[in-house]
Design a protein around this nucleic acid. Structure first.
Length: 776
DNA sequence: GAGTTTGAAACT
DNA sequence: CAGTTTCAAACTC
């Protein structure tokens, strides 16, 4: 094994100065030429984010700088008692030469730090080879000093002893690392050795950052590595305890075969509280689109800018957005999100995606003006608050897309750049809305064919484009899973899914997912609703009153819901309202989950592909791709995946005693029984509906009490209540029609709305009845 | 609800 | 790849 060598990691933010190209870290010691220039123009691989309880691993960490050698580990250790954050980079290069000014470039092209070498010895270090023990040296910075002091522990070139080197930094550049918090990157394939500074070949450099007097509780960031072009997963799980909002980025693969959703194989996770303030970050992805969806309930109700101008959220080069308390400017709420820095737009430090709430014309115009003045010649687009959404590309081209306007939902966002590679559309996510997406090949396709289709997309949908205009790029609509967010401490989740140049299929716990049609019909987009799992077929089409597709809760006890035994996991969904124990199929255990996904995919690359595909004969013939292996059930029980999916066994099956074929009398008998049962259910449903309608026809002023004097709850079905109910039903009908739902779904939505109305009436009646009883 | 059966998934 | 074990859902009582 090569000798260990360590370097210094420096993570800085230049939050308040988007125009800054670099930060100079000047060491006031004898280190000759000891000026380190951190090119923030290249800091695109990192997200600066709150540092709450940051711990995690960075996999596939590898430098590409030839003079850096192999980086084994990047460790951040906050365990020192002086509230200093330390970052350590462990390098296995045998060469102990200097590396001043060297940029540590991760495999995704991002820069995580600069390295300093040959710094002056300040003190000795007690570094050990303990694998998990980071270098722990810090400089006791003066608490009264407005400057941030960094301490570098490095080898004295003359004595081979570790040393600490203070570095004066511009405070504005260090609003990043929160004291006492750790960010750990581990390269899983790397040697476990952490630091061996004793040897002349193993200089150790550690940086400690003191934030005294600097940190703003609303401006705390960390550097977050993002996806690697390799299949491996890079991510940093973040404890949700203090960071109830998460954004999950999943690597986007372009040019590979179409993939169905894998369960959120998070590449990076970022989280942040969305209480009064929040920070969001876009994580660039090395080879694909990057996308952010912000929870509207939090962001767009509260969301406006803190540091930036009123009513705006800037996403600057440091890739962090801080959203503070609700602000409005002329009644307009805005969220400006920059396009991913991955786009590598040169020269433009600030780019925006603008989200504009409905407003009056003049106000909108004012915002546009403001935006134009903000974006330095690289304005990507603007949107108006009116129903037609205008996308203005940098080239001056405009396109208008009419999107549904829903109350209580933020405006959709459509971002595009005519010169860059990422195009995206963010539809504001609503609560309990999950979506299925699919895929026009270009933004122009959206323009030409997607105008009406877009209106079908549910709030929260994100459409991604992998870029490479005109060369087979694809859009992927990415679901948000707000219902799960709600469960998981109201975390907001954004996921970037693997994408192909042809089609992208994303399966998520999508409510209504079978209801959304692909934007581009010419793309072989597979719907997640198309039998991605046989076990869900029975419930397809059923929609909860919330609009959610009901999903059977799992009961896993031993698998942690991280194996394909678990239906949730197998379907690429997080567990939600399940009965499982020790569940790790959630955002909190994103790292474990990602590993499990990877493991499953290693065993079977098709593990997350639909089990039920189309047969060879015709499009209408479904068949089990793998076939069943039943031995005792005769393939006439739900043990059999074919039978459960209501399809015949095929020659792909290896079952014994199969009775699940067309002419099978047993099967026909079962089918008849099943049909009869279904008819009974339908009759019962119809009866209930009829009863409901009769209830709604109760006279508006019925008797107020029974013969015994008990007051009747239907007293409250007054004409006003009936009218209000009808209004609700009409509104729901119009809404569903406007969303261009299929007629069946429209009917269902109206009926469900009626159910909700009834529940409200009953509740109100009962409450009032209780009050009356109490009063009596 | 407890226990049994079943077959897919995981493991060896 | 085959045999075995594990697992959770389906099923039975």
């Amino acid at each position: 094994m090569p000798a260990q060598r360590t370097g210094i990691g420096v993570v800085n933010l230049h939050e308040n100065d988007p125009s800054a190209q670099s930060i100079e870290i000047n060491s006031n010691n004898s280190f000759s030429g000891n000026t380190i220039s951190v090119d923030y123009g290249q800091l695109k691989g990192h997200v600066l984010n709150p540092l709450d309880n940051l711990e995690g691993t960075l996999e596939n960490l590898e430098p590409t700088e030839s003079n850096l050698g192999n980086v084994d580990q990047v460790l951040v250790d906050s365990s020192d008692s002086n509230n200093h954050t330390q970052i350590q980079i462990v390098n296995s290069t045998a060469d102990s030469g200097h590396s001043e000014g060297t940029l540590l470039r991760l495999s995704d092209g991002s820069v995580v730090s600069s390295l300093i070498d040959n710094s002056q010895i300040v003190s000795a270090s007690s570094l050990t080879t303990a694998s998990s023990q980071a270098v722990k040296r810090q400089l006791n910075a003066s608490s009264s000093s407005p400057m941030v002091t960094k301490v570098i522990i490095t080898k004295n070139p003359n004595s081979s002893q570790p040393q600490a080197v203070p570095i004066q930094l511009n405070p504005s550049s260090l609003q990043s690392l929160q004291q006492g918090q750790a960010l750990t990157f581990n390269q899983t394939m790397a040697p476990a050795v952490s630091v061996v500074p004793q040897s002349a070949q193993t200089p150790t450099k550690t940086i400690t950052i003191s934030q005294q007097g600097i940190m703003s509780p609303q401006k705390q960031y960390f550097a977050l590595p993002v996806s690697s072009p390799k299949p491996g997963i890079t991510k940093i799980p973040i404890s949700p305890a203090k960071t109830p909002t998460k954004i999950t980025m999943i690597p986007v693969t372009v040019g590979k075969s179409p993939q169905r959703i894998a369960p959120a194989s998070g590449v990076s996770v970022l989280s942040k509280s969305l209480s009064d303030s929040a920070t969001y970050t876009a994580v660039p992805v090395s080879s694909g689109p990057t996308m952010i969806t912000l929870s509207p309930s939090k962001v767009f109700k509260q969301g406006t800018v803190v540091q930036q101008r009123p009513g705006q959220i800037q996403f600057q080069q440091n890739q962090a957005i801080t959203i503070n308390k609700p602000q409005t400017q002329g009644g307009v709420r805005q969220v400006a999100i920059p396009l991913s820095s991955m786009q590598q737009i040169q020269g433009s430090k600030v780019q925006y995606v603008r989200l504009v709430a409905p407003t009056q014309q003049g106000q909108t115009a004012g915002i546009k003006t403001s935006l134009a003045s903000l974006v330095q010649g690289k304005q990507i687009f603007t949107t108006s608050g009116a129903h037609p959404l205008t996308i203005q590309q940098a080239g001056g081209q405009q396109m208008k897309i009419t999107l549904p306007v829903q109350s209580n939902h933020p405006r959709p966002v459509i971002a595009s750049s005519n010169t860059q590679t990422v195009q995206r559309i963010l539809l504001p996510a609503g609560p309990n809305q999950l979506q299925l997406r699919a895929v026009p090949s270009t933004l122009a396709q959206i323009q030409t064919s997607g105008v009406s289709s877009l209106s079908n997309l549910p709030p929260g949908t994100t459409i991604l484009s992998s870029g490479n205009a005109g060369s087979g790029q694809g859009f992927a609509l990415v679901p948000t899973m707000l219902s799960q967010m709600a469960q998981q401490q109201q975390q907001a989740t954004v996921q970037v899914r693997p994408m192909t140049s042809q089609a992208t299929v994303i399966a998520q716990p999508l409510q209504n997912r079978q209801e959304f049609i692909p934007i581009a019909s010419n793309n072989p987009v597979l719907s997640a609703s198309v039998a991605n799992s046989t076990r869900n077929n029975n419930s397809e089409g059923a929609i909860e009153p919330t609009g959610a597709r009901p999903r059977k809760p799992c009961n896993c006890t031993k698998s942690q819901c991280l194996k394909l035994y678990c239906d949730c996991f197998a379907n690429g969904e997080f567990c939600h309202n399940c009965n499982c124990t020790n569940c790790a199929n959630n955002l909190i255990h994103e790292e474990e989950r990602s590993r499990a996904i990877k493991s499953c995919l290693d065993r079977n690359p098709m593990a997350f592909h639909p089990k039920i595909g189309k047969g060879q004969i015709g499009n209408g013939n479904r068949r089990h791709n793998k076939g069943c292996n039943c031995k005792r059930s005769g393939c006439l029980k739900n043990y059999c995946e074919c039978y459960e999916a209501k399809i015949m066994c095929s020659n792909a099956c290896k079952c014994f005693g199969c009775k699940n074929f067309e002419e099978s009398p047993e099967r026909r008998t079962l089918m008849h029984l099943a049909d009869a049962a279904e008819v009974r259910v339908q009759q019962q449903t119809a009866a209930k509906t009829k009863l409901s309608s009769q209830i709604s026809g109760v006279p508006s002023k019925p008797p107020t009490s029974t013969a015994t004097g008990e007051r009747l709850p239907y007293t409250f079905i007054t004409s006003e209540v009936a009218e209000a109910t009808c209004a609700c039903l009409l509104a729901q009908a119009e809404e569903s029609e406007r969303m261009k739902m299929p007629p069946v779904v429209q009917e269902r939505m109206v009926i469900e709305e009626f159910g909700r109305c009834l529940l409200q009436i009953i509740e109100s009646a009962n409450k009032t009845k209780e009050l009356i009883i109490f009063a009596e």
